[in-house]
Amino acid sequence: MGLMFKDETYRGDFTFYNSPEAIRHFPFPFHEDKYMYAVNIEPHAPGPKGSAYEFPIDVDEHYVADMKDRAIVLAEDPLRCQSLPHMITAEWDLVELLMTSMSEAYPEHFTLTRNGDAWHWINRPLGIDDEFTFGDTSTLRYPPMEYITRQCQGDFCLLDQRDGDLWMDSGMVTSQADWSLDFDIGMSFKEWHAPVPLAHEVGIFDRALKFLLAMQIGRPVRRLNWTMTINPRLDTSPENYHKWGTDRTTVTPENVGDKVHLRVELQALWRLPRSNAIVFSIRGYLIKMREVATIPKWSRRLHRVLKTLPPELAAYKGLTRYQQMTIDWLAKHDDGAPTTPGVWPE
């Protein structure tokens, strides 16, 4: 299938970039020339070949580098991975979901052999070959959720369902856009979304919660969210904000193309069979402005979205300091031509 895993970094010298294939793989989030919150949940159905939606769990050229960055974060701050004790069944559910998805979609990279509870997992890109007993935590080198999410791109939360609500009771969160699992663990759906502006008033979270509570096994759903990040940094956690916050002041008209990144979260949710919990995966994709500009429709549209973004949203997403410079840079890539509906390149 030709996936070549790149040796690149998300910190220090920031060597991350997207190949032309990875640019076309990018889940561009804007289907029209403006943006406002919407529930925007759709079935997580297979998408076009080569897109981020081709398989339920997307593995791309950044896989090995993503997993190295996660290991660095966990070594510095083990609290990025936490799970309340009642979530152990959901953790095993997650092992099954990820191992089966990855091995079915990418058999040249991952192999799962099951013989009753005796499982054999081979992860070739990371050089892992483990036999273990499904359901017996002592047979893995890490607790089940930590074990498998050290091998899968994106952050993962396990949401327990009880009392007509969803509870953030478990998670592996190393590449988040400014929220803290350590602070939010144990919270209900509306509690952990409390700091989000504007969306509560228009009933977004009421509708989303109602929808998610009714989710069924075998019918995963997805939505996109987005923000912007300076430098290709995955760990934009609040925990380390005092270390990366100064990045936001380093943007100049000359370096916008390389420094400013659109960061898109492909959020997918699955109902789990044993625990009745829900997996909430938050897979982040980064793309430089210079890379966005290689797709004329995308640079036209991003320019117009940023120009018309409500100020509260710009502030919440932390764009305020460099928003105008980015708009000015993108203006050079917007000839004013109309754009076609939908997210796909023309």
């Binding site: 939010d184 700091p195 609040p238």
Partner: peptide, 12 residues
């Protein structure tokens, strides 16, 4: 920040 954790009994 206007965000409260019951588990910690604390604001952020």
């Amino acid at each position: 920040r206007d965000h409260y954790s019951r588990r910690l009994g604390a604001f952020q």
